[in-house]
Write a protein that binds this DNA or RNA. Structure first.
Lengths: 115, 115
DNA sequence: AGAATGTGCAACCAGAGGGTTGCTTTTTTG
DNA sequence: CAAAAAAGCAACCCTCTGGTTGCACATTCT
């Protein structure tokens, strides 16, 4: 066996595509950029500075939330959204795997040529 | 100045969203998984094993190509597609920035609490 | 040359996505 | 309590997207 890869508790192989898809939009990327700064923001705050409607921003936030990138909780009159680094870390790991596989392929090719 | 940020030749701030969007699809992710293994593959080869049509796979490959993730060149009767790590590296850097910003926010918060 | 293989191109279709407007509900503030 | 602020909900619109089918074009194999 090998490949460290985890504990026994059924890790279920969660799909990464939704996370990538959620990041595949400039508006959502800028929202993430603002939220990963640390402080939570309300929907109205996030709407300011954008040319879009509050409802549009809300939709984008829901998409980010479904992907686990962001997590919003209603606090009083407004709902605060905060960044959640887990899913981002997840796809970083995934991209590392891709790069690693590519590098290994290159080194195999190189050793083949040199040999 | 600071922030290494590369030479003078107008780096133009290329948008990362299209790359994320291109990866936001399971079919495309599996294509990337196969191509980053090193060997180039033709469209027909990539179609085998998939339940989709050759034309569908072609479309997906064009999307990946537009995002710079993959690069296809026609060689004789068939067109070979190969993986191109650059754009992937690009978004890895981007995600590193996001994580870095988040970590800095956390440490600022921590020092504020401790202080 | 003729058949077979591998692509390219175009039309078409159903559904998802991004955005808007309009109205209701909840919570704060005066 | 009444007005204002912040969200939620829902309908609607248009465009993009993922997928198909059908056919033409190019390249290899016999």
């Amino acid at each position: 066996m090998s490949h460290k890869r985890r504990s026994g508790t059924a890790t279920k192989r969660q799909p990464r595509a939704p996370v990538f898809a959620a990041l595949g939009d400039e508006t959502r990327l800028s929202l993430v950029a603002r939220l990963c700064g640390g402080q939570p923001h309300s929907i109205s705050q996030l709407t300011e500075g954008s040319k879009l409607t509050r409802q549009a921003i809300t939709k984008h936030l829901r998409v980010l939330e479904s992907a686990g990138i962001v997590h919003g909780v209603r606090r009083g009159r407004e709902s605060q959204f905060k960044f959640d680094p887990q899913s981002i870390e997840g796809i970083k790991k995934y991209l590392d795997l891709v790069s690693e596989q590519w590098d290994q392929a290159l080194s195999r090719l190189k050793s083949f040529v040199e040999d």
